[in-house]
């Protein structure tokens, strides 16, 4: 299925969903519009706008078929999400160390020792920069960092 068809269907569902949810809030009247008024009509507009997109979708193949590696994107997304969930429990430095380690691995950097040193350096340096210098509160986790 072409990408723009999927996107369009998703947007259409999003519009429908928002209109449905907004309908459950009070719509009010034109004289006194309620909280649901604006999002309800926006949802309807979004659904309507997607009808012509749906009909034209998939007609032309715009994607130039050079070798793409979407799996790299999915893995990076997964790593980022995992990082978000572990960073507060594990603490900033260990979590970031693992995070950078995995990402460098993904990007086909070969030298293992180099990766280890680089990940360690980045996690420590960024901790120093953001926490100590800029005063950003970073999670400490179970260890000292």
């Amino acid at each position: 299925m072409p990408q723009n068809l999927i996107t369009s269907i998703l947007l259409l569902s999003f519009g429908g969903f928002m209109a449905w949810q907004a309908g459950k809030l009070s719509l009010g009247t034109v004289h006194m519009p309620g909280p649901g008024f604006f999002p309800f009509y926006l949802g309807i507009i979004l659904v309507l706008l997607n009808i012509p997109i749906l009909f034209t979708a998939g007609k032309k193949n715009t994607t130039t078929e050079e070798e793409l590696k979407p799996q790299r994107v999915f893995l990076t997304l997964l790593t980022l999400l995992l990082y978000a969930f572990i960073v507060e429990n594990l603490g900033y430095v260990p979590a970031t160390f693992l995070f950078v380690l995995v990402l460098l691995q993904l990007a086909t950097v070969k030298n293992v020792l180099f990766i280890l040193v680089l990940s360690f350096g980045i996690s420590l340096l960024s901790y120093g920069l953001f926490k100590e210098l800029l005063g950003v509160p970073l999670p400490r986790g179970v260890w000292f960092f």
Binding site: F99, V100, L103
Partner: peptide
């Protein structure tokens, strides 16, 4: 770029985290 992109993602994550922790 392989060395650059983990940094970009990390800084983005740090940036948003610092708003409300």
């Amino acid at each position: 770029y392989p060395y650059l992109f983990p940094l970009i993602i990390l800084f983005c994550a740090l940036g948003v985290y610092s708003i409300k922790s």
